[in-house]
Design a protein around this nucleic acid. Structure first.
Lengths: 250, 250
DNA sequence: TTACTTTTGATCAAAAATAATCAAAATTGA
DNA sequence: TCAATTTTGATTATTTTTGATCAAAAGTAA
């Protein structure tokens, strides 16, 4: 077994269990601890996991690898949310698509529509470029290589030059108290611009992010027209009491 | 069995199983390991699979790497022009890169430089995205799928928001009488914007286009600082008489 | 703190895979 | 047809990867 294969398996194993020891991984992969240590060091350097003494921990927000955006593939929950969200899109619509794995999953459900997509996400661009019925408007600006997306002032200016019927966005945290929160300023400014320039804003958000707060607080709950989530009624009760329209997928 | 057939079978085999060893492939294709290695090297260079020690892995999403331009690869003339042009680029430069196959060829000669690239070309984006020393600013606007480039008013506005030390551009026709000409309005407006906002303009142009005129006349000869071409002295005489600085590659 | 255990990183030799070279075979073009 | 070119497969030298060993560093417990 070579490094690439082991890397894949290590990341898959860490996706299930939060953390693993060097020896556990050595047994799973049938390799020596020395090899595992070398692998973990290399993978940690890529930012795909967190190295600990004695093993490794899952990285909560892994840098997207390649343009594949694997996280979410084979994730039935994200797929269900994405499918539900895509159902809101009608032929003739002009839509904003945010970067993020759940929004990315919408692509496969959009391919039969005749729409115009405005996005800052390279994975979405790559996924939709071969669809003849979809026109793409790419947001310009500084390329964030790690996130495979365009960020920065220029990008916000670009978005401000357009109005879309609907925006499909993601967040890192959502709560009745703090509204929408994100890990980074860069992402939140883009998402804010989408919200400002769209007629209707759909927030795609899996249950794990509801009730959690992240670093940057960037929008009120009232900015959102519909939350599409897999979370059950109990979990979204507080949000609904604040007037948020919630659609449960799955 | 020839290379094209084996390539097809290798990619098909990798579609089923995530990864295969050189020896497994050698058995499947009834070829020697040496041949398989050569094939894998070539296919990996196209970006259609990932080469590993001992074999190859399936490429998750070859779409963006599929942007990678093929025309011009194995074209020694274009390569020579591109190499000469790349020699004008210094560390710290901010450069505009136009779309077009000759300019695209510059990428391989730019990978060791520390520069900032502003471009509307997706193949260039795909080629340079993994180079840590190069920062990319992507020009936003309408995506022209056929040309794998961004065009339109928004793109021109975007370019007008920047100033670069150097612009590397292409044309469809170049003559002493009519200056720079292009096939399409869309491309010419972008190229014009590059010219307007760059300190120095380098025109990359192979001999076949010199003395020819195309449809849209979009810039005077005087807009160009240096023409880099493979054409001989006789062919460029008229241009030089009009004050154009000509650098002959090869 | 100190003693003890665990983990790590460096080094090295063995094994595996590769790149380079070259002659034979196949293909191509005149 | 024959010569020239390209492709292939075998051989060999080089590189990469691996697992073992061991001293140093980090963590743990008294």
């Amino acid at each position: 077994m070579n490094f690439q294969e082991r890397k894949k398996k290590i990341l898959a194993a860490l996706d299930d269990t939060e953390s693993l020891s060097v020896f556990e991984l050595a047994e799973i992969l049938e390799a020596s601890p020395a090899t595992i240590r070398r692998d973990l060091g290399d993978i940690a350097e890529e930012g795909l996991l967190i190295r600990t003494h004695g093993g490794a921990m899952k990285m909560e927000n892994p840098v997207l690898t390649g343009f594949s955006e694997k996280s979410g593939v084979n994730n039935p929950t994200k797929e269900q949310i994405a499918e539900k969200a895509a159902a809101y899109v009608q032929d003739g619509d002009i839509i904003f698509l945010d970067c993020g794995s759940t929004v990315f999953q919408m692509c496969r459900f959009l391919k039969k529509k005749s729409i115009r997509v405005i996005t800052n996400s390279l994975p979405i661009l790559a996924e939709l470029i071969d669809v003849p019925s979809i026109q793409i408007n790419l947001i310009g600006g500084e390329l964030n290589k790690a996130r495979k997306a365009i960020h920065g002032d220029k990008a916000v200016q670009h978005i401000n030059g357009y109005h879309a019927h609907k925006a499909f966005i993601g967040v890192d945290g959502l709560s009745a108290e703090n509204g929408l929160t994100a890990h980074s300023e860069h992402e939140s400014t883009i998402t804010t611009a989408f919200i400002r320039n769209a007629g209707q804003v759909m927030l795609l958000c899996d249950a794990s992010k509801i009730g959690k707060d992240s670093y940057v607080k960037f929008a009120e709950l009232s900015a959102i027209h519909t939350l599409i989530t897999d979370a059950d009624a109990a979990r979204t009760a507080a949000l609904r009491q604040n007037g948020l329209n919630v659609e449960i997928a799955g």
